[in-house]
Amino acid sequence: MNSRAVTPAPSRRSLVLSFLVPAAFVLAYFAARAGIEEVEPGSAIALALALFPVPFFALLIYAYVRAVRGMDELGRRMQLEALAFAFPIAVLVVFTVGLLDLAGFHGTHDWDLPRLWPLMLLPYWAGLALAQRRYA
């Protein structure tokens, strides 16, 4: 059985992973978007720019998993409840946008997936707020 005696203080490494990694991803994403709009669609440089944020997002996943592993059991439970709330909503958004696209409603670029995905963070935050309230 594993029971730690003292909750460790956040290390410099964990602070970097909590703040710098998400910031780096956001910067990489918007840099890629800005770059893609300037180059020829379908070109090699457009492909490279589209894939540019992927390693940053992989680092973000690593940082998130590490942060969750550093939480106590209630913290992990709340993360699970937030993700259980957010994931089906994200799936719903993706397939609904896909079906709307198939149905011919693809004229509005305001609601396409590249613009929509940041909104998928909202259900996660809502789920986390609900979990916080439940166990407060």
């Binding site: 029971s3 730690r4 106590d72 059991e73 209630l74 439940r134 166990y135 407060a136």
Partner: peptide, 26 residues
Amino acid sequence: ERLGVSRQTVNAIETGKYDPSLPLAF
């Protein structure tokens, strides 16, 4: 601090909102 969990966890257990795992109960 003695248990290595957050204050929120202690509060949630005390108020019956959260049942601890077996290792934490031990």
